[in-house]
Each structure stands twice: as structure tokens, then as C-alpha cells.
Design a protein around this nucleic acid. Sequence first.
RNA 1: GCCCAGGUGGCGGAAUGGUAGACGCUGAGGACUUAAAAUCCUUUGUCUGAAAAGACGUGCGGGUUCGAGUCCCGCCCUGGGCACCA
Length: 851
Amino acid sequence: MATSCKNYDFREIEPFWQKKWLEEKTFRAENESPMEKYYVLDMFPYPSGAGLHIGHPEGYTASDILARYKWANGFNVLHPMGWDAFGLPAEQHAIATGQHPSINTENNIRRFREQIQSLGFAIDWDREVDTTDPHYFRWTQWIFLQLFKHGLAYVDDKPVWWCPELRSVLANEEVINGRSERGDFPVERKNLRQWVLRITRYADRLLGGLEGIDWPDSTKRQQIAWIGRSEGTELDFEIVPDGPKICVYTTRPDTIYGATFLVLAPEHELVERVTAVENREKVRAYVADTKRKSDLERTDLAKEKSGVFTGSFAKNPYNGELIPIWVADYVLVSYGTGAIMAVPAHDDRDFEFAKKFDIPVKQVIADPKNELPLPFCGEGRLINSGEFDGLPAAEARKKITQKAEREGFGRVAVKYKLRDWLFSRQRYWGEPVPILWIERAHYDRALAAKNAYFMGKIPDDVVSYGKGGTEWCAIPVAEAQLPLTLPETDTYLPSDDGESPLVRAKRWLNIFVNLSTGEISGEAAENFVPAVRESNTMPQWAGSCWYYLRYMSPDCGESLVDPAAEAYWKSPDFYIGGAEHAVLHLLYARFWHLFLYDVGAISGAEEPFRRLYHQGIILGSDGTKMSKSRGNVVNPDDVICRYGADSLRLYEMFLGPLNAMKPWSTQGIEGVYRFLKKVWALCIDGDGNVKKFPEEDGVGVETLLHQTVKKVTEEIEALQLNTAIAQMMIFVNGAQKMGISRSTVRIFLQLLAPFAPHIAEELWARLGGAFSVAKASWPAYDASKFAANQAKIILQVNGRVRDEILVDGDASQEAVEKIAWQRSRFMAFVSGKEIIKKIYVPGKIFNVVVR
RNA sequence: GCCCAGGUGGCGGAAUGGUAGACGCUGAGGACUUAAAAUCCUUUGUCUGAAAAGACGUGCGGGUUCGAGUCCCGCCCUGGGCACCA
């Protein structure tokens, strides 16, 4: 029932127990249980070719400690693992080798699984999921179809960067001065049809939901900032003499009397219309110039403001003043209304612009401190503002907006920074979007006939786009045809014109569909109309948006999650992963979860992650980020080989606070390794036999034990695992000196088990404990055992420590004073002085203030 | 620029407003050993001192308090996030 090694031979012990846990399915979670459930979730890894990184075991060990602790406390624990396996590196490997990315992915997963298993985590391996498995992504595609049906997925022509040389779409960050970062090739703007998800419709709920969940403040703040809700006012400005109205958005309507010009974003739809004939050339040139710039260049704060006058004027609806209309790229078309009223006296950017182009600056808010110069962006009372003079700014905002509403030229408005989620990628290694494109005429005819298979599965507003004079309409792939798998292609490169590699698979791409049944045919046939498959794939975020639901019933064939399982597990009780996902993954997943909840696909919880924690980053021993080029990378396999998984686990937890950034130390791990050897030596003699333990604990051991149980229990709950380990070290050091009984050792092994499960399981078995120590019920402590019957009182004079005395635990101030007055060391600082005050903190401090 | 977190020995770090430096690493000395490894013991913030002891000490400058690493005000530095969002 255990190994027979004489010394602490982790190379024999660890594989032995890992095999046993796997074979016995020790950590299998049941979907029905009389025990209370506890769901511990790790952010699942991307199985990269580099293998497990030393940072992975940090979060995994912390969650494993919590999982094992919960098992010991009688919970039915779900602690699963899986693979976020779609993504660019596998695709690039495929492009380079010509080998299908699934092969590389499979190899990487096998390696990751072995490495993770070699760390002895209490994982239910029967629930493993893989986002690239068709049985899994079938449901990712199904979710997309629900989004589509509910009008939350649409197509849009979005400008993207395209590099003909690299034959690749580039992200904004990859374009520098109109050339590609990699290779320095020219790039061009290209409008490409993209799928977009209407996450903005959930902006308010994504914001509101943050209030009730236990997340790190910084992460909540990041999401709040990302959603960027702002309340303000929309105001309509008439263009003189008789042009259209321009609607601007402002959060400072109180400064309306200080507006000395109006600015349109270069892409604003009214730019052409408001431009006077004589300014047309200049304006067009400016707009064209802007188009060429990358977002990075445009938003570079260091650059000077630029812009051009349109030649037209707008009328301030409050005072009738005519102000010039400019076009400038510091106004973004995608926020607010794409147009602003510029108040240089009270806005830094407008001020900068006005200075450069010699536009008047008119102060309308008095600076209470009278600290000129302008601009002054704070709060104050209004001046030069007609009927509103003298009002405090906040009140003026209300009054001014009310007037606009009354007179019909303005309204309260709420705006968000959050944009809809660009959901398509022109890549091979992702989930195919399960959509077919058919011609408008076929679409309309099928709808009119009312026997179209897609009735009730399409949005109220048709999703379509025009190409070559034809309007193509989106219909879903029939559910029965899911999963829609990736076709074989001869290369995984994008096509010559920036489309997905999937367009190369012509026989897959161009098909015929029966609009009554949804059947697909490769050949033209009666009742079949031509259709083109969507060739874009989903971004890597898709699979990770709902994997925590799949773990509940990974084999369920009827739905994405078995309703009974979902009703039982609801949502993870604890979620741990890196802070780098603070916005993207954690926002997207919340969006999908809310949506699935709304459409009744799930029912357990509205928020997916009620308690979230970020582990910190482990740096190289030189205090910088680990990287190959710096040569400071620590490989977990090497560490396990040299010290064992228990030492690695323990050390990563002992390094410092779980959420802190901390450097690895090669020498530091020796300390925890020594600790484990001491634990071994506490139980096993030099011949490999269980030691003869004394019948009774040594004096003081009982107190120490109960203190240790209390401390370790409380610190696990608080995830202060470094100090929990420190307490266990204190215990072992004490036990070594004082002598310890068999039953006390066994209690200690239970405390150690979540941290160093292999050695704990081994010693537990050798000491006659029943398998598994992880399931033995967690020890309780008795506070009365360490209520000190003696207390050490610190004697202070004027707050400075001068002496210490031992008294009865419940000693009164009088008793303490009586002893204190006898102490010469203490009295040396007191005698001859006037005692002004005496402070007694029972059991701790007696402080005398003298003069 | 704005928002947030954090600055404690040679190092990682510990401290409900109550003995600053737990625990571990490193260094020094010692025991065991033919020797080494392993293990065990002592010691390890700075300064003064033979010692007893004292002074100083938690980024800097003030403040509150009997008492501040901890609370308040003003700075400096490091890390993270956002960044022309009107």
C-alpha cells in the first residue's frame, strides 16, 4: 500500500501515488451527491510547443490546495483540466511544416497532460476538454448560431491592415509608419467583411454584474474602464445658413457658452456636405491623409494636433453665436456622435488645437483658486454664460440640459467606450463559422414559402452583404450538420487577397443547399440552390468563453451542458488565472454567460465567476521576466527531476504572497526540500522503518499542534499559503525537539497533504492510515488548548520597550504593576520622573508615560 | 497625463495601531566524518561596547497617537492598467 524506499525517494514515491490516484479515480467528481459541491477552476492552458512553463504550476498548485482542502472538508469537489488548443502558434507551425495543425496540437496536449500529471494535482481526468475537439466545438458553433438567431452576430465591412508581401492581415500594433513591423513591407488599408458580436448591447449588465462578485478590485476597475460608461448631453447645432444639423456629445454642457468651434471626425458622414466649395480640396486631402494613418499614429499623444477648416459655421443653440466647423483627427468617429463642441478654455485638447490654429478662447467657468492660465478643467461657477451665470458647474449641467430637452435641441445621453466584438479571423486553425451565404432572391423566396428550414433560426433583420452586384444573405448551417469541421487544404496560408485559407477548399466552400431541409449537396440538384460557406473562423476567445460549463458534463451529446449537471454545479466557486486576462477573456466569457442565461441554455447563475483570483508572475532569479534570450528560464521538468513535485509545489507557494510578482531562487527551493526531508525523518528511520513514536507528545507539542491547525486552516481559506507553510515549518522544528506521538504526526500529515500530497500520502499509508489522506476529514482545533496560562507583558516607558515579564494569562493591571515596579531595568527609566499616564493592554503591554 | 498597487536586513518575505525582521535562503563558527555530501548545533539589521547594555532603523519630509511599517498630508521611486473616449 506504499512504496518501500528507505530514504525520501520522491522519484519512486511520486509516480507511485500519481498512478494510484489516476487508477482509483480518487478525485472523481459526481454530478449527484449528498455532499455539498465545490467547483475549483483553473484558467486552462494553451498547450504550446515549449511545454509547461514554471508559472503554470503556481496557479494550479494554489487551486489544488484549495480543492484538496475542500475534499477533506467533505465537499464534492470538481477540479477539472482542459486545453485551449486553437490558436496561432499551431497554425504557424503548420504553415512552416505543411503538417496539419491537429497533429502538432495533439502532441503538445500529450506533453502538457504528462507534465501536469507529474505534479500530482487532484484533477478529475475523466472531464478533460479540448476546444479543438469537434465534440467540443460543435457546441461553440451552436452558441454562435444562437447569437446569430438573436441578432447579436452581424457582418460589417471593417477596415483592416493588409500586407500583400506577408499575405496577412495585421493588427494595429503590427503596423509602424505604414509598413509592417515584421519585414518592413508596405501595408494597405483594406475593407474586409467581418463578423461582429453585439457585446455593446450587454454593456450595462456587464457593468452592473461586477457589483455582486468577489473579484480583485483592479480587475473590476479595468473592466469598468473598458466598458467606459459616461453620462452626458447630446446637442444639435444648426449649420448656417440652412445645412443639416450636427449632433455633438459632451459631458460638459455647462461649458456651452465657451464653445468657440465645432470639430467633426474625418470619417463623419457630414464632412462632405458641410465643406464649402473653396475648401473642398484641402478637406479631401486631409481626410485621405488621415485614412492612411494607423490608429497608433493617430492616437500618438506626442504628435501635434492637426485639422482643417471646412469653411462652414454652426449656430450655438444657446446664444446664437456662429462658430467655425473644423475637421480634425483628434476626434474619433467611433465614440459619441463623432463630433464635438470644442471649448478650449476648459479642455486640454481643444485648447491645444485652438492655440495652434488661432481660434478664440473664451472662459466660462471661474477657477475658484483663480489660478490662471487656461485651460481649467475643474469645477467652478459659471461666468459669461447668460442666464446661467453664477451657477455651480454641476447644477448648470442639469439646467442647461433641461433647457435643451425643453426646446428640443438636445437630450441626456449615455455613451460607452466598449465597441462591438470583432469576432472573425482569416485563419485556418479555429472553429469554422457555421453560416451559409445564399442569394437574396433565394432567401426571400424561401421565407415567403415558409418552409425554409432556417425559419425561426435567423435574426429579424437579415444579415447580408453585397459583392459583385449580388446581395448575399446569411443562413445557419443546419444544427444536425454540426460540428462543421475544417476542410483539408494544401496550405494553411491565407489566400492572396486576404481571405481565410478556407477559401482554397473550393469543394467545401461552394455547395448547394436545400432550403426546405437544410441538406447540403456537392452537386447541383433539384430543390437545391447554390450557397457559399462562410470561410472565416472564430477567434481563440470563442472556445474559452464557455469551457467551464462543458466540464460539468463533457460527454453530453444533447446540449452544451446537461441541465441537471448545470443546475447542480451552477458556476465555479473559485477561478484562478493570470491578470493578463482581466479584460478580454473575462469580459467575453461574462457576455456569453449572460446571453446563455437569457436564452435559457443555462439556469444556475447569471455571473460565471463569482470568486476570482490572479496568481502573480514568477520572475527569473535576476528579477526580470523569464525569457530564453536572458537565459533565466526555469524548466519545471528539471526542478521535478532534482527535487520532486512536492518540493516544486511547496516552493512556489512559499515564495511569497500568491498574487505578488516574485523572483525564483534556485537556492530557495533547497529550504523546502530540506523541510520535506525533516518530515520524512520525523516518521521513518534510517532503515526505512516507521519510527517508534513516544506514547505521549512532548511538553508544548499539543499547544503547537492546535495553533498550527488553526493557522493552516485559516491561511488556506485566505489563500495566504506562504505563511501556512511557515507555520508547518515551525511545527516540524518544534516536533523534532520536543518529541511527538504517532497520532499527532498523523494530524500534521493531513495538514501537509494539500501542499505536498505525495509525501503525505506515503507517510500516511506507512503509518497505517486508510487511503487516501486527501479524504480523511480535516482536523479541528481547540482554542482552549493554546489559551496561554502565562502571558509575556512588554514593559514600555514612553512607548519604548524596556523590559518584559511573565504573568498569569488573566493578570490584572494591578498585578502587572506590582511586578513591574520591582524590575530594576524598567525602573531605571521611571524612577525620579513624574508618571503622567499608564496604559495597560491585557496580556500584551504595560506602558508608562513619564516626564 | 490619468487610475491602481507597492517600496521592510545581503536576498525572498512576516507583522488585528502594541516586542519590526516570523519562516526560509545566504554568510560565519562548530559537531559528526579519514574526507566530502547529508544531517545537527550556535550565530547573522546597522553603529557604539570586552560585556551588560544603549543608540539608530520599515523610500523621503511633516503630522496624529502613550505607542506608527501600519492612520493622515506633501513628495520621490518601482511595477501594472488606461490613454485625444469630448
